[in-house]
Structure formats: structure tokens, C-alpha cells
């Protein structure tokens, strides 16, 4: 995508402000990653625990630039037909039926089987033109007039083979379709890949990308996020609940609560008209924050202590 078309991305400060206006509160590092990705035209591989805003980052970017967000959700077994393109075989079949008569004309006067086959081959070619092509996300992202945000979500869930395909495409933003030729992106999209680290991403793919690791946010940042997403919550309560979540993250948990859980919890507390972090209230809403029974028990055992600390944070 061309720099002059998107003044929203002209400086790190503008990106931060633009994101904030859309409710996405980010660290300078995240804004720097977006800035560099745009300036240097490199994909960004975003890693970090679930729920820290990896997917949201790409969405917000698309919103900020008013370009389409094209998302490819990865899973085991994802292949080219689902990621790149597929032939519309239904349409192909339908057309062959409709054109059946033409077939007779075409073969008329052909000498011998070899020639018929030869002619049929030529005839067959028209069924492999763009009209019969069903673009999937990767191809679609390259066909957008003004560019696009291509989000390749949870790439760690795909197979290694798929990574090499991505690598090929991300190196020159073109796809070769044997029957048609090479399709080159009109405007190269801005690409975000996300990974929850369920396995290592291949070295080669990592090297193609800027590597952005999003950790859990600082207290200060998380309070701003809560303020932005749940603006109606009381300031003191906001402060305390974030402090409490941070102390939970210090515990040895199977799954530490992420930003999404903090927000869900803030919304629950708001709905329950909570004025303060009362122990009973926290106990009964702990399952909003913690998804494993073990973790809930773990937190409950020291709850009084944790809450006292959270309430008394300056």
C-alpha cells in the first residue's frame, strides 16, 4: 500500500492517536511495529498469549485505514483450495452442459481421435479462466483496489507445509495459477500473522516478518484499555480490578487472565452494580476471569490476601 494514500500512518504518534480514537489502546512498541510494517512493507508476525489483542490489532488497522479486512483463520489441514483459490466446478459443469451442442460443432470434421482430443483440450482451457475462479482470502487480499489488511490468524494451528506456501506468497505478493499464469497484487496488502505459540513458527517465515511480541499489558496501559472499553465503570473500582488481575497473573495458573477476561469481568462488575471489590462478589465472579477449575481454587485459597493488596494499591 502506498504511503501517500494513508496519512493515518505517517508517524508513530498519529497511529497511537488513531488507534485510541477507535478504542484500541496500545503501547508505543505496537504502534512502532505498525509504522515499520507500513514503511518497510513487511508482514508482522504477532505473538503473545491469547486475549492480548493480536486479532484486534489487525481489525483496528483496517478500520483506521478504511480498507477491507480479509481474514484467513488457520486450522490443521488448511490447504490451498481454502486459502488461495478454487475452481468453481459447479459452474464449469453447468457450462459444459449448456455448451454441449457446441461440442458437436467443435468436433465436426476432426480426423481421428487424436485431433478430437487436441481440440477438446483447447476447448477445455476456457473453463480455467478467471470467470471460473473462486478467490479465497490470500488471492482476494491481492485483488483489492485500495489494498487491504490481510489477517492470517493463528498461523500456529496450520501445518508446516502451509507455512511454506505463505512464505512463497509473502515474498513477492504474487500467486502462480498454473492454468492462468501469475497473478500479481494490484496493491500489496498489509499483512498480520498471529500466533498463540502453540508451536514454533518456522524460522524462514519468522525471518520474512517483523516480530511483535505482545505481553500482558502494564497496569497503566490496562487501566486505559478498561477506561476505553468499559467507560462507565467507577475509577476506583477500575483501578482495583486491574490491580487484582495483575496479582492473579503472578500466580502459577494454567491460564492467566488476559485483557479480554479483564474486560469481561469489568463489564460483569458494572452489571452487578459493584461499588467495591467485595470478597463474596469476587468469589462468585471469579469464573469470568479464570477458565480452569484448578485455577479458580488456586485463586480462592489466597483471595482475602489478594484483595487486600488490590484495594490498597496506591
Amino acid at each position: 500500500m502506498h504511503t501517500q494514500d494513508f496519512p493515518q500512518l505517517e508517524s508513530i504518534e498519529r497511529i497511537e492517536q488513531g488507534f485510541e480514537a477507535l478504542g484500541y489502546i496500545c503501547s508505543t512498541k505496537i504502534a512502532t511495529a505498525v509504522f515499520l510494517a507500513f514503511q518497510l512493507r513487511k508482514p508482522v508476525l504477532v505473538e503473545g498469549p491469547p486475549g492480548v489483542g493480536k486479532t484486534e490489532l489487525a481489525k483496528t488497522c483496517a478500520e483506521l485505514l478504511s480498507v477491507p479486512l480479509i481474514r484467513l483463520q488457520c486450522y490443521e489441514g488448511l490447504d490451498e483450495a481454502k486459502a488461495l483459490y478454487e475452481w468453481k466446478y459447479g459452474k464449469q459443469l453447468l457450462y459444459t452442459q449448456v455448451l454441449k451442442e457446441k461440442l458437436g460443432d467443435l468436433l465436426h470434421g476432426a480426423r481421428g481421435l487424436a485431433e478430437s482430443v487436441e481440440r477438446l483440450h483447447q476447448f477445455g482451457d476456457i473453463f480455467f479462466s478467471e470467470d471460473f475462479l473462486e478467490p479465497r482470502p490470500l488471492l482476494k487480499a491481492m485483488q483489492q483496489e485500495r489494498g487491504a489488511i490481510l489477517l492470517i490468524d493463528e498461523v500456529d494451528k496450520s501445518d508446516y507445509e502451509f507455512e511454506s506456501l505463505l512464505l512463497e506468497i509473502l515474498s513477492d505478493y504474487q500467486i502462480s495459477i498454473p492454468e492462468i499464469g501469475t497473478v500479481k497484487a494490484r496493491v500489496s496488502p498489509m499483512v498480520f500473522l498471529t500466533s498463540n505459540n502453540s508451536r514454533d513458527i518456522s524460522d524462514a517465515l519468522k525471518r520474512r516478518c517483523l516480530h511483535l511480541y505482545i505481553p500482558f499489558p502494564t497496569v497503566e496501559l490496562e487501566e486505559r484499555i478498561v477506561l476505553s472499553r468499559v467507560p462507565d465503570i467507577d475509577a476506583t473500582l477500575r483501578h482495583q480490578l486491574v490491580a487484582f488481575v495483575h496479582s492473579l497473573r503472578e500466580l502459577d495458573l494454567k491460564k492467566a487472565p488476559a485483557i479480554s477476561e479483564t474486560l469481561d469481568w469489568a463489564r460483569s462488575l458494572l452489571l452487578l452494580h459493584a461499588g467495591d471489590l467485595e470478597e463474596d462478589l469476587v468469589r462468585s465472579t471469579l469464573n469470568v476471569l479464570l477458565k480452569f477449575e484448578d485455577d479458580v481454587q488456586n485463586a480462592e485459597s489466597g483471595l482475602g490476601e489478594l484483595l487486600r493488596a488490590a484495594r490498597s494499591t496506591p
Partner: peptide
């Protein structure tokens, strides 16, 4: 793993074999 992650077999996708379908149609 990096050295041995394999290239995909580009041509091997499951697709309609038009030539064959037409030929058999004769």
C-alpha cells in the same frame, strides 16, 4: 525442522479434471 520443512506440492490440489471429464463425455 527449518531445513526440512517441505515445499507444498502445488499442482496436486483436488480439482475437476476437465480434460478427462470431457473426453469420457464423448
Amino acid at each position: 525442522a527449518a531445513r526440512h520443512s517441505r515445499k507444498p506440492k502445488v499442482q496436486k490440489r483436488g480439482q475437476l479434471d476437465m480434460g478427462r471429464t470431457l473426453r469420457r463425455g464423448i
